[in-house]
Protein backbone atom coordinates (compact mmCIF):
# COMPACT_ATOMS: atom_id res chain seq x y z
CA UNK A 1 0.00 0.00 0.00
CA UNK A 2 1.53 3.30 -1.09
CA UNK A 3 1.00 6.22 1.26
CA UNK A 4 -0.53 9.27 -0.38
CA UNK A 5 0.02 12.76 1.06
CA UNK A 6 -3.48 12.70 2.54
CA UNK A 7 -2.95 9.34 4.18
CA UNK A 8 0.35 10.56 5.59
CA UNK A 9 -1.15 13.75 6.97
CA UNK A 10 -4.13 12.43 8.88
CA UNK A 11 -2.35 10.88 11.92
CA UNK A 12 -0.64 14.21 12.45
CA UNK A 13 -3.90 16.13 12.17
CA UNK A 14 -5.49 13.67 14.59
CA UNK A 15 -2.60 14.09 17.05
CA UNK A 16 -2.81 17.86 16.71
CA UNK A 17 -6.53 17.78 17.40
CA UNK A 18 -6.09 15.59 20.48
CA UNK A 19 -3.34 17.81 21.87
CA UNK A 20 -5.49 20.86 21.15
CA UNK A 21 -8.27 19.73 23.49
CA UNK A 22 -6.04 17.95 26.03
CA UNK A 23 -5.47 20.89 28.44
CA UNK A 24 -9.18 21.76 28.35
CA UNK A 25 -10.00 18.47 30.11
CA UNK A 26 -8.66 19.92 33.33
CA UNK A 27 -9.21 23.35 34.78
CA UNK A 28 -6.40 22.81 37.27
CA UNK A 29 -3.63 25.30 36.41
CA UNK A 30 -0.94 23.03 37.83
CA UNK A 31 -1.97 20.15 35.58
CA UNK A 32 -1.84 22.49 32.59
CA UNK A 33 1.63 23.56 33.68
CA UNK A 34 2.60 19.89 33.98
CA UNK A 35 1.38 19.20 30.44
CA UNK A 36 3.59 22.03 29.20
CA UNK A 37 6.59 20.60 31.08
CA UNK A 38 5.90 17.15 29.61
CA UNK A 39 5.96 18.58 26.09
CA UNK A 40 9.19 20.52 26.73
CA UNK A 41 10.73 17.29 28.03
CA UNK A 42 9.46 15.49 24.93
CA UNK A 43 11.46 17.96 22.82
CA UNK A 44 14.57 17.34 24.95
CA UNK A 45 14.21 13.55 24.97
CA UNK A 46 13.41 13.22 21.26
CA UNK A 47 16.58 15.20 20.53
CA UNK A 48 18.68 13.07 22.88
CA UNK A 49 17.27 9.89 21.35
CA UNK A 50 18.56 10.97 17.92
CA UNK A 51 22.17 11.32 19.04
CA UNK A 52 22.24 8.62 21.72
CA UNK A 53 19.60 6.13 20.66
CA UNK A 54 20.03 6.22 16.89
CA UNK A 55 23.59 7.43 16.32
CA UNK A 56 24.80 5.58 19.45
CA UNK A 57 26.93 8.43 20.78
CA UNK A 58 26.97 8.24 24.58
CA UNK A 59 26.69 11.92 25.42
CA UNK A 60 26.08 13.34 28.88
CA UNK A 61 26.25 16.89 27.57
CA UNK A 62 22.67 17.25 26.35
CA UNK A 63 21.47 19.10 29.45
CA UNK A 64 24.23 21.69 29.05
CA UNK A 65 22.98 22.40 25.53
CA UNK A 66 19.55 23.10 26.98
CA UNK A 67 21.24 25.44 29.50
CA UNK A 68 23.03 27.27 26.69
CA UNK A 69 19.72 27.63 24.86
CA UNK A 70 17.94 28.88 27.97
CA UNK A 71 20.61 31.43 28.97
CA UNK A 72 21.08 32.68 25.40
CA UNK A 73 17.38 33.21 25.01
CA UNK A 74 17.14 34.85 28.44
CA UNK A 75 20.04 37.24 27.86
CA UNK A 76 18.86 38.19 24.36
CA UNK A 77 15.35 39.06 25.48
CA UNK A 78 16.07 40.51 28.96
CA UNK A 79 19.14 42.57 28.06
CA UNK A 80 18.67 43.41 24.39
CA UNK A 81 14.89 43.43 24.12
CA UNK A 82 14.97 40.80 21.39
CA UNK A 83 11.45 39.37 20.95
CA UNK A 84 10.96 35.69 21.79
CA UNK A 85 10.39 34.83 18.13
CA UNK A 86 14.01 35.81 17.37
CA UNK A 87 15.47 34.73 20.72
CA UNK A 88 14.23 31.16 20.09
CA UNK A 89 16.17 30.68 16.83
CA UNK A 90 19.11 32.48 18.45
CA UNK A 91 19.05 29.97 21.31
CA UNK A 92 18.86 27.08 18.85
CA UNK A 93 21.80 28.46 16.91
CA UNK A 94 23.94 28.88 20.04
CA UNK A 95 23.06 25.38 21.26
CA UNK A 96 23.73 24.01 17.76
CA UNK A 97 27.24 25.48 17.71
CA UNK A 98 27.92 24.13 21.20
CA UNK A 99 26.52 20.75 20.14
CA UNK A 100 28.96 20.52 17.25
CA UNK A 101 31.78 21.33 19.68
CA UNK A 102 30.60 18.64 22.10
CA UNK A 103 30.48 16.28 19.12
CA UNK A 104 34.09 16.73 18.06
CA UNK A 105 35.53 14.47 20.81
CA UNK A 106 33.33 11.68 19.38
CA UNK A 107 35.79 11.38 16.46
CA UNK A 108 38.28 9.76 18.79
CA UNK A 109 36.33 8.64 21.86
CA UNK A 110 33.68 6.00 22.31
CA UNK A 111 31.36 4.75 25.02
CA UNK A 112 32.36 5.55 28.59
CA UNK A 113 35.25 7.76 27.48
CA UNK A 114 32.98 9.91 25.37
CA UNK A 115 30.54 10.07 28.29
CA UNK A 116 33.31 11.37 30.55
CA UNK A 117 34.48 13.98 28.04
CA UNK A 118 30.95 15.29 27.45
CA UNK A 119 30.24 15.24 31.18
CA UNK A 120 33.28 17.45 31.75
CA UNK A 121 32.16 19.89 29.06
CA UNK A 122 28.61 19.96 30.42
CA UNK A 123 29.64 20.59 34.01
CA UNK A 124 32.00 23.39 33.00
CA UNK A 125 29.11 25.05 31.15
CA UNK A 126 26.92 24.85 34.26
CA UNK A 127 29.70 26.13 36.51
CA UNK A 128 30.34 28.99 34.09
CA UNK A 129 26.69 30.09 34.33
CA UNK A 130 26.63 29.73 38.11
CA UNK A 131 29.76 31.85 38.50
CA UNK A 132 29.03 34.65 36.02
CA UNK A 133 27.19 37.70 37.34
CA UNK A 134 26.00 38.63 33.85
CA UNK A 135 23.89 35.44 33.86
CA UNK A 136 22.69 35.91 37.43
CA UNK A 137 25.36 33.61 38.86
CA UNK A 138 24.11 31.30 41.62
CA UNK A 139 21.11 33.54 42.35
CA UNK A 140 19.56 32.63 39.03
CA UNK A 141 18.43 34.59 35.98
CA UNK A 142 15.06 36.29 36.63
CA UNK A 143 12.65 38.67 34.91
CA UNK A 144 12.85 36.95 31.55
CA UNK A 145 10.00 38.49 29.55
CA UNK A 146 7.27 36.19 28.23
CA UNK A 147 6.67 35.85 24.48
CA UNK A 148 4.30 38.41 23.00
CA UNK A 149 1.90 38.21 20.09
CA UNK A 150 1.22 41.84 19.26
CA UNK A 151 0.29 43.31 22.65
CA UNK A 152 -0.81 39.96 24.09
CA UNK A 153 1.62 38.32 26.53
CA UNK A 154 1.78 34.52 26.56
CA UNK A 155 2.14 34.21 30.31
CA UNK A 156 -0.70 31.95 31.44
CA UNK A 157 -0.18 28.21 31.67
CA UNK A 158 -2.87 27.58 29.08
CA UNK A 159 -1.56 30.04 26.49
CA UNK A 160 2.01 28.81 27.03
CA UNK A 161 0.83 25.26 26.40
CA UNK A 162 -0.51 26.37 23.03
CA UNK A 163 2.89 27.91 22.26
CA UNK A 164 4.83 24.77 23.20
CA UNK A 165 2.47 22.18 21.71
CA UNK A 166 2.92 23.01 17.99
CA UNK A 167 6.69 23.22 18.50
CA UNK A 168 6.76 19.82 20.22
CA UNK A 169 4.59 18.29 17.50
CA UNK A 170 6.85 19.79 14.82
CA UNK A 171 9.86 18.39 16.68
CA UNK A 172 8.28 14.94 16.68
CA UNK A 173 7.41 15.25 12.99
CA UNK A 174 10.98 16.22 12.04
CA UNK A 175 12.43 13.39 14.12
CA UNK A 176 10.17 10.86 12.38
CA UNK A 177 11.10 12.26 8.97
CA UNK A 178 14.81 12.18 9.76
CA UNK A 179 14.87 8.75 11.36
CA UNK A 180 12.84 7.11 8.58
CA UNK A 181 15.10 8.53 5.87
CA UNK A 182 18.59 7.72 4.68
CA UNK A 183 19.93 10.01 7.42
CA UNK A 184 18.35 7.88 10.15
CA UNK A 185 19.68 4.69 8.58
CA UNK A 186 23.16 6.20 8.37
CA UNK A 187 22.96 7.13 12.08
CA UNK A 188 22.03 3.56 12.98
CA UNK A 189 24.74 2.13 10.75
CA UNK A 190 27.44 4.15 12.47
CA UNK A 191 26.04 3.06 15.83
CA UNK A 192 26.08 -0.62 14.85
CA UNK A 193 29.48 -0.71 13.15
CA UNK A 194 31.37 2.48 12.19
CA UNK A 195 33.88 0.59 10.04
CA UNK A 196 31.22 -1.24 8.03
CA UNK A 197 29.36 2.06 7.69
CA UNK A 198 32.39 3.84 6.27
CA UNK A 199 33.19 1.16 3.69
CA UNK A 200 29.51 1.36 2.71
CA UNK A 201 30.16 4.96 1.66
CA UNK A 202 28.98 6.78 4.80
CA UNK A 203 31.10 9.71 5.95
CA UNK A 204 31.13 8.70 9.61
CA UNK A 205 32.47 11.99 11.00
CA UNK A 206 29.98 14.07 9.05
CA UNK A 207 27.03 12.01 10.26
CA UNK A 208 28.25 12.01 13.88
CA UNK A 209 28.39 15.81 13.79
CA UNK A 210 25.00 15.98 12.07
CA UNK A 211 23.49 13.87 14.89
CA UNK A 212 25.04 16.12 17.53
CA UNK A 213 23.87 19.24 15.65
CA UNK A 214 20.28 18.07 15.22
CA UNK A 215 19.95 16.98 18.83
CA UNK A 216 21.47 20.29 19.98
CA UNK A 217 18.85 22.25 18.02
CA UNK A 218 16.17 20.34 19.95
CA UNK A 219 17.92 21.08 23.24
CA UNK A 220 18.26 24.77 22.39
CA UNK A 221 14.57 25.01 21.54
CA UNK A 222 13.57 23.28 24.79
CA UNK A 223 15.94 25.50 26.79
CA UNK A 224 14.47 28.66 25.32
CA UNK A 225 10.95 27.45 26.13
CA UNK A 226 12.01 26.76 29.74
CA UNK A 227 13.43 30.27 30.07
CA UNK A 228 10.35 32.17 28.92
CA UNK A 229 7.90 30.00 30.83
CA UNK A 230 6.21 32.04 33.55
CA UNK A 231 7.60 33.27 35.97
CA UNK A 232 10.59 33.70 33.62
CA UNK A 233 13.28 32.37 35.92
CA UNK A 234 16.11 29.90 35.31
CA UNK A 235 18.77 28.64 37.68
CA UNK A 236 22.02 26.66 37.17
CA UNK A 237 20.56 23.99 39.45
CA UNK A 238 18.02 23.17 36.73
CA UNK A 239 20.88 21.87 34.59
CA UNK A 240 22.80 19.50 36.86
CA UNK A 241 23.80 15.88 36.45
CA UNK A 242 20.53 14.93 38.19
CA UNK A 243 18.55 16.49 35.35
CA UNK A 244 20.82 14.71 32.86
CA UNK A 245 20.17 11.34 34.53
CA UNK A 246 16.45 12.07 34.38
CA UNK A 247 16.77 12.78 30.65
CA UNK A 248 18.74 9.59 30.12
CA UNK A 249 16.07 7.69 32.00
CA UNK A 250 13.42 9.03 29.60
CA UNK A 251 15.30 7.72 26.59
CA UNK A 252 16.32 4.40 28.16
CA UNK A 253 12.88 3.64 29.58
CA UNK A 254 11.06 4.72 26.41
CA UNK A 255 13.38 2.67 24.25
CA UNK A 256 16.87 3.58 23.07
CA UNK A 257 16.84 3.87 19.31
CA UNK A 258 13.06 3.39 19.13
CA UNK A 259 11.33 6.05 17.11
CA UNK A 260 8.76 6.56 19.90
CA UNK A 261 11.32 6.10 22.69
CA UNK A 262 11.87 9.73 23.65
CA UNK A 263 8.16 10.51 23.57
CA UNK A 264 6.98 7.58 25.72
CA UNK A 265 9.86 8.10 28.16
CA UNK A 266 9.38 11.85 28.54
CA UNK A 267 5.67 11.48 29.30
CA UNK A 268 6.13 8.68 31.86
CA UNK A 269 9.20 10.04 33.59
CA UNK A 270 7.85 13.58 33.91
CA UNK A 271 4.72 12.21 35.58
CA UNK A 272 6.72 9.93 37.90
CA UNK A 273 9.11 12.81 38.63
CA UNK A 274 6.18 14.95 39.66
CA UNK A 275 4.53 12.24 41.79
CA UNK A 276 7.77 11.56 43.70
CA UNK A 277 8.55 15.23 44.27
CA UNK A 278 7.97 14.83 48.03
CA UNK A 279 10.75 12.27 48.18
CA UNK A 280 13.18 14.34 46.16
CA UNK A 281 16.19 13.19 48.21
CA UNK A 282 15.63 9.65 46.92
CA UNK A 283 14.76 10.59 43.33
CA UNK A 284 18.22 10.14 41.88
CA UNK A 285 18.56 6.74 43.56
CA UNK A 286 15.14 5.65 42.27
CA UNK A 287 15.86 6.84 38.73
CA UNK A 288 19.31 5.26 38.70
CA UNK A 289 17.77 1.98 39.82
CA UNK A 290 15.09 2.11 37.12
CA UNK A 291 17.82 2.68 34.50
CA UNK A 292 19.78 -0.37 35.72
CA UNK A 293 16.65 -2.54 35.85
CA UNK A 294 15.48 -1.38 32.42
CA UNK A 295 18.83 -2.00 30.79
CA UNK A 296 19.03 -5.45 32.42
CA UNK A 297 15.50 -6.73 31.89
CA UNK A 298 14.16 -4.78 28.90
CA UNK A 299 17.13 -3.35 27.02
CA UNK A 300 14.91 -1.99 24.27
CA UNK A 301 12.65 -0.19 26.72
CA UNK A 302 8.90 0.12 26.56
CA UNK A 303 8.99 0.84 22.83
CA UNK A 304 10.81 -2.44 22.26
CA UNK A 305 8.24 -4.38 24.29
CA UNK A 306 5.36 -2.88 22.31
CA UNK A 307 7.15 -3.76 19.07
CA UNK A 308 7.58 -7.35 20.21
CA UNK A 309 3.90 -7.66 21.13
CA UNK A 310 2.92 -6.53 17.64
CA UNK A 311 5.50 -8.79 16.03
CA UNK A 312 4.23 -11.79 18.03
CA UNK A 313 0.64 -11.05 17.06
CA UNK A 314 1.57 -10.77 13.40
CA UNK A 315 3.57 -13.98 13.65
CA UNK A 316 0.72 -15.86 15.34
CA UNK A 317 -1.80 -14.56 12.82
CA UNK A 318 0.39 -15.66 9.93
CA UNK A 319 0.95 -19.10 11.49
CA UNK A 320 -2.77 -19.52 12.03
CA UNK A 321 -3.51 -18.48 8.44
CA UNK A 322 -1.00 -20.91 7.00
CA UNK A 323 -2.28 -23.72 9.27
CA UNK A 324 -5.84 -23.11 8.06
CA UNK A 325 -4.65 -23.10 4.48
CA UNK A 326 -2.93 -26.46 4.87
CA UNK A 327 -5.99 -27.86 6.71
CA UNK A 328 -8.25 -26.77 3.88
CA UNK A 329 -5.95 -28.41 1.36
Amino acid sequence: MRATPVRRAWPWLLGFGALLVLPLITSNAYHRYLLTIILINVILAVGLNIVKGFAGQVTVGHIALAAIGAYTSAALSAYYGVPFWLALPGAMLAAGLAGVMIGIPSFRLEGAYLALATLGLAESVRIYFSATDYFGASIGFGDIPPPFIGGYAINTHLSYYYLVMPLALAGIYFSFAILRSDIGRSFQALREDPLAASVSGINVRKYKLLAFLISALYAGCAGSLQAHLSPGFIHPNNYTIVEMVTLLLMVVLGGIGHIWGGIIGAVLVTIVYDLTRDYYQYQLAIFGMIIVLTVTYMPKGIGGIIDRLFAERRFNARRKASAEKSNAA
Binding site: I178, S181, R185, S186, G201
Partner: peptide, 28 residues
Protein backbone atom coordinates in the same frame (compact mmCIF):
# COMPACT_ATOMS: atom_id res chain seq x y z
CA UNK B 1 24.19 -4.01 11.09
CA UNK B 2 22.62 -6.61 13.39
CA UNK B 3 19.78 -4.56 14.86
CA UNK B 4 18.69 -3.13 11.53
CA UNK B 5 16.42 -5.11 9.24
CA UNK B 6 17.68 -7.11 6.27
CA UNK B 7 16.22 -4.53 3.86
CA UNK B 8 17.77 -1.64 5.82
CA UNK B 9 21.19 -3.29 5.58
CA UNK B 10 20.93 -3.14 1.80
CA UNK B 11 19.61 0.42 1.91
CA UNK B 12 22.67 1.47 3.91
CA UNK B 13 24.80 -0.13 1.19
CA UNK B 14 22.86 1.92 -1.38
CA UNK B 15 23.52 5.13 0.62
CA UNK B 16 25.65 6.84 -2.05
CA UNK B 17 22.94 6.44 -4.70
CA UNK B 18 20.01 7.85 -2.76
CA UNK B 19 19.07 11.12 -4.37
CA UNK B 20 17.55 13.60 -1.97
CA UNK B 21 19.07 16.37 0.08
CA UNK B 22 19.40 16.40 3.86
CA UNK B 23 16.97 19.33 4.26
CA UNK B 24 14.39 17.50 2.13
CA UNK B 25 14.76 14.46 4.40
CA UNK B 26 14.41 16.55 7.56
CA UNK B 27 11.21 18.17 6.31
CA UNK B 28 9.91 14.86 4.94
Amino acid sequence: FGQMTVLENLLVGHHAHIRYSAPAAIFG
